[in-house]
C-alpha cells in the first residue's frame, strides 16, 4: 500500500470513528488537542490496530500524537 493510500484509509477510519466528515480530518489532527478523552483514544487505537493488522506497543502508542505520526509509524512497520 502506498503512503497516500494508507493516509486516505486512515483518514476515513478516523472520520468514521469520530463521526466527522472526512474533509475535516487532516493529517495534522492532534489527538490531545482535538479533545479525545481516554476512552476515545483507546478505542481509536484498537480500530487502527484491527484495520491495519498491527499491534502497537503502549510505549510506541504514546508517541503517536497526530495522524501523521500514525501514518509514518504504519508505513515503517509495513516496509
Amino acid at each position: 500500500m502506498t503512503a497516500v493510500a494508507l493516509s486516505e484509509r486512515l483518514r476515513a477510519l478516523v472520520a468514521e470513528q469520530l463521526s466527522l466528515p472526512v474533509e475535516e480530518v487532516g493529517l495534522d489532527l492532534d489527538f490531545e488537542a482535538f479533545g479525545l478523552d481516554s476512552v476515545e483514544k483507546v478505542e481509536l487505537l484498537a480500530r487502527i490496530e484491527d484495520a491495519f493488522d498491527v499491534v502497537v506497543a503502549p510505549a510506541d502508542a504514546v508517541h503517536l500524537a497526530t495522524l501523521d505520526d500514525v501514518v509514518r509509524y504504519l508505513a515503517l512497520r509495513r516496509a
Partner: peptide
Amino acid sequence: LSPPLGLGGLEAW
C-alpha cells in the same frame, strides 16, 4: 494511577 493509554498524550500524562 493509570499509565499512558491509547494514542499520544505523553506530555499531558
